[in-house]
Amino acid sequence: MGRALRLALVIAGKDIRMELRARTSLLSAAVFAALVLLVQNFARDPTAVSTIDLAPGVLWVTVAFAAVVAMNRAFTVERENAAFDGLLLAPVPREALYLGKYFANLVFVLLVEAIALPLFVLFFNVGLGHALPGLLATLLLATAGFVAVGTVFSAMVVKTRFAELMLPVLLLPFMVPPLIFAVKTTVPLFAGRPLSEVLPGLRFLAIYDVVFLTLALLLFPAVVDE
């Protein structure tokens, strides 16, 4: 297990290093997130609906769309020069390969969220204050869950012709349960309720994470093994 984890970190490190040097997909995902925030502001009647009523929904719609865009790159980068075949030939257990891709994806999506969150606070005039620890926990738990599913799916869709379109079609239904709970958690947090009130929601997110990460580890070999 220790070896698998170390190998996973090596693979994740490779992906993160590549991304930090090229910066193209990280930046485009962040710009995309900012644009989604911007567009949603104009999807309301400013005299009738106050921003705070919309804020939790806006935040999670942005997170969902930006995450899909960010996750698309995990396996598309391996397509060039058949790099993925090289990875598969390396003496790396499939689980370590999955975890490596998972960690890298998690870091990307969290980075995009880290850029989007301050913009969200700015555009929608949300006073985070006491809500911040709870909100960060929600972001982390929700993201950990749907990235687990998204990593498996992005390894599959890369074999299809319309990978960029296929990923959201497959993934969005899987994002809905964590999103529902994330919104359920965010609403009381923004209303200044104490953290203890949102614990059931966080627990649900954690259960989703454990179930789908386990399932992904079990099923990933069936995706990559010829």
């Binding site: 599913v149 498996v152 799916f153 599959m156 074999k159 497959l170 239904p173 899987f174 809905v176 349960p177 529902i180 709970f181 359920k184 649900f204 989703y208 179930v211 789908f212 399932l215 099923l219 069936a222 995706v223």
Partner: peptide
């Protein structure tokens, strides 16, 4: 063969997702 494996993976994940959807839409 690839089509078979991929469809099986997504179908199994979908079956596991159903109770989560059920729970979340009720609690929503």
């Amino acid at each position: 063969v690839e089509r078979g494996r991929f469809s099986a993976v997504i179908s199994i994940m979908g079956v596991v997702l159903v109770p989560f959807i059920h729970l979340s839409v009720y609690l929503w």
